[in-house]
Design a protein around this nucleic acid. Sequence first.
RNA 1: GCGGAUGUGGUGGAAUUGGUAGACACGCUAGUCUUAGGAACUAGUGCCGAAAGGCGUGGAGGUUCAAGUCCUCUCAUCCGCACCA
Length: 814
Amino acid sequence: MQQYSPKNIEPKWQKIWDESGVYKADLNSSKPKYIAMSMFNYPSGAGIHIGHAMNYTISDVKARYKRQQGFESYHPVGWDSFGLPAENYAIKTGVSPQKSMAKIIPDYHKQYKAMGWSNDWSKEIATHEPDYYKWTQWLFVQLYNNGLAYQDSRMQWWCEKCQTVLANEQVIDGKCWRHDGSEDPLVDKKEVKQWFFKITDYADELLESIEDLNWSEVVKIAQHNWIGKSVGGEIDFKIDSSDDVIKVFTTRPDTLAGATFIVLAPEHHLVEQLLSDENRSKVDEYIKSAQQKSDVERQASKEKSGVFTGSYAINPITDKQIPIWIAEYVLVGYGTGAIMSVPAHDERDWEFAKQNNLEIIRVIDNQDPDEDCTTSEGILINSDRYDGLKSDEAREKILEDLAKDGVGTEKINYKMRDWSVSRQRYWGAPIPIINCQKCGTVPVPEVDLPVVLPELTDFKPSGDGLSALARAGDWTKTKCPKCHGQAERETDTLDTYICSSWYMLRYLDPHNSDKIFDTELANKWMPVDFYNGGDHATAHLLYARFITRFLNKQGLVNNPEPFDKMLFNGKVSASDGTAFSKSKGNGVDPLEIIESGYGADALRVYLMFAAPLEIGTKWDPQGVPGAYRFLNRLWNISSEYVEQPNGDINDETTKTINKSVHSMIKKVDQDLENNLYNTAISAMMGCLNDLYKIKVESFNKCSVWDEALKSLVACVAPFAPHIAEELWHLLGEKTSVHADSWPKLNEKYLVEDQITVVVQVNGKVRSTILTSKDSSEEEVVNKAKKDQKVATYLQDQNIKKTIYVPGKLVSFVI
RNA sequence: GCGGAUGUGGUGGAAUUGGUAGACACGCUAGUCUUAGGAACUAGUGCCGAAAGGCGUGGAGGUUCAAGUCCUCUCAUCCGCACCA
């Protein structure tokens, strides 16, 4: 008998699968389709880590399960290969990202195959290839042509030394990643012209359709909050001794009379003209320090810092002068960048007023809570002619009156902002726009796509906030498609989130050179049946929804949503509960585990068994050996079995085997449908333990044992594909276990003749009795009473009450 | 602060509509065997107790014949958003 040795069997089957193409999906197949995938991989030089092992195994199990059930199952693979890390690496080393990707991606091929993932390699895509980004650019042009792409300015991190914008990631402890010495300056914010997609046009439909999504709740809630719809009003506050007005968004127009001051964001466009001379230097200093903080930092600090501008506005209800302040916690990006402060009815405003000695006026009187505690509705006070109105009446009335005077309007506001899609960087898809002095911004005609990214030797940004492409000389010079005059190419590139917002569609038609994808194929295969990942609850998942909705409106795909089931899986953290990190050296390398002899199968089983998928888990060094032991036992019983002589087994044993195996099948089926992988695996372990006990008594080659072992092997196959394939063949099968092999549940084996009934006395379990499944209530209760243990508790006392739950329990109350 | 969860043995975690709490696994203990291995197999393992029995799902109450599960209050931890006007 051979020992279980993953080192021998895993590479063997990987090669055979490669050659036989068992994982190649026929997109035109007449079989029912199933597509399972995990979030796009960004290829870095470090190779796959345990998080990848987790994510891709989850979707692989799903794809394999469906393939074994006879679905045309597609588990795609591709690379989100544009992006900042490759560019940073290129800047440091001078090696072009094109060259590093050409080396890195083939390494990933080996690693994916070593993990035993059932990817269809014939349809592999990579976003940095012109064949792919031609369509990313095409998509940009469609959005542009539909009025959904526009240019505007937004504040950006800025490094004075590099003369370039920085990503959040490139700002480290307030300094530029390349200029982080003690003499280097802190980074700053600067207004930069950018391209935007008008995702806010889709805010309502993205919000409304969330409830229909079959997604992990956490993601749905996160998206809901991210879109952040709030209904209120926009109110004009006239500036005293000026004709200008400050527009303010509020969800509480009813509290308008209590607005005792105005707060502007430091970047608000009116700040400059509001400053009195004595306040100017103080305010300038304040603004500068605010700009060195991230939005998060500005809003997180407990101190409600702020400065007075020296100017006043007029409250439209009370006509009182109210001071205009500046505070960093007010952001330009949300609402109008200005708020009316009602300290009496907003905790944050209250703190600000207290700290800065500002007036506080109560304008809502909450009724005595004793009168009606559930619907206590505030009544307006100190609000001039609105006194006595209920809050929600006042909201409407005040807005109505303001509207009549042309100084207010109803307004719906969203927290979500438009999607900034331009990057002043080299390693991305060039924005397909030509800047012409005469015609303005002109999209590149479809025949001229792709605009190929030239391979440079120097990848540093060009200063003045431009990408390295600004130095690409001839490349930038072109003719205007409209007037044919001299013109220049846009040198910004596209945000990589665009690449990943439509890739699921390209998976369905990866080699199409005429179209972004074939609509018929997309209609057949969309939406993606199963999608998972442990990141991007908002950004990527929202962008993919937005783009799919856009393509749907263009008539390119029927279904407006990209992903049917989306599982937001937990992460594996280090044994000490902290995140895995290179610098801490607490990482676990999946390939090392495989090569150490435990193999990919044991690693996969451990990861899927450790915890429910939606909950994270700590890495347990004993976990993989434990999973290995299970597989080893499966190996040993199968190897022993094929050496047994032919023979019969008795009816009793046959029943026991069938019952164990079929209840396992039932549980595994249910759990795989519901993504409860951990309990599916424990059901298989339980079944294997049963078979070990049975084989001591009766172990002959026969159809019952044959079926039992094959069923178990087939159920293990999605999790541990290599050992399953090996044993499947050992047990005499000629075709692969990875297609059309799923065992059929037969409920008749699950029927019980004898049922265990629990007997309670005064609510405590005192005994259990065995009864026939056909027994009447009377029979069961009588049997329960006679049970020796129960009888000692009942003694001769009166039974006040008897509760009978058929097939489950008898409960006596005495 | 707001929103969302989650609290079960030494550990990871199981427990349909309320109906035998602790499945499965790790760890540990004892034993068997030996081609001494990263074995394999067998038995045991919630806590207290010699046993009978009692106690046990963060804590305190409550509903019920019966509560991990339902209700009220409370404590703790984690995640998301981040002063959202």
